[in-house]
Design a protein around this nucleic acid. Sequence first.
DNA 1: ATGTCCCCTTGTAGGGGA
Length: 257
Amino acid sequence: MRVATFNVNGIGSRLPALLQWLDETQPDVACLQELKAPQEKFPLDAIREAGYGAIWHGQKSWNGVAILARGCQPQEAGRGLPGDPSDEQSRYIEAIVNGIRIACLYLPNGNPAPGPKFDYKLAWFERLIARGAELIASGEKVILAGDFNVMPTELDVYKPERWVNDALFRPETRAAFRRLVDQGWTDALRTMHPDETIYTFWDYFRNAFGRDAGLRIDHLLLSPALAPALRAAEVDRHVRAREKPSDHAPTWVELDA
DNA sequence: ATGTCCCCTTGTAGGGGA
């Protein structure tokens, strides 16, 4: 079973690229972030035609997350990250697919830091850590997948010294990610590639992809009940090299059925 | 500071966000 995460950066502009990638790689589950579309503008017909059922949480202009499942309808199991009823940003949705709980998330960017956006990022992170603890305690097979907007270590940044004051790499951000993982989650990509430089995002600026000036910020975290099933974890890097690409590449895990 | 791309607009160029 293949579970992928892909920040599409606008599903309106990215639909052809998304459909091409789905057709080529046929992931069983695809978690999408940054739809940048209101609920009613999700291209459900095209997704269905590609063979996928879908649930999604849209928002005008910003954010937006979706879970696609090949050949079946994802069973929605939660919309919105618990812990703050006043939070109106569409950044979190859960579904059950094939007995696995899939949490698709788009963690706030948080720049500029310090400031209110960074405060929101850290507060959102605390809520995710609380939800993570509940999910670990449940003993369920769970995947946390998405754009975490965190480079966990220096190995995950092309030039770490340039990023130390950025919201994606500040000590508070890395410490929060570590606290989450230390609950018992397995960082699938890093586990399968312990010493490798491996990126999931390249800025549109300054030919970042051509220079391989990338970041590893898209992650798939496996709960203890699921970690023994991990067989492979990779980045579909070639997708970033195409015409009109997202700034993120699809990232995926292969799990033993 | 800059670069680029996406989305929206008492819209068609400019601002906000990443």
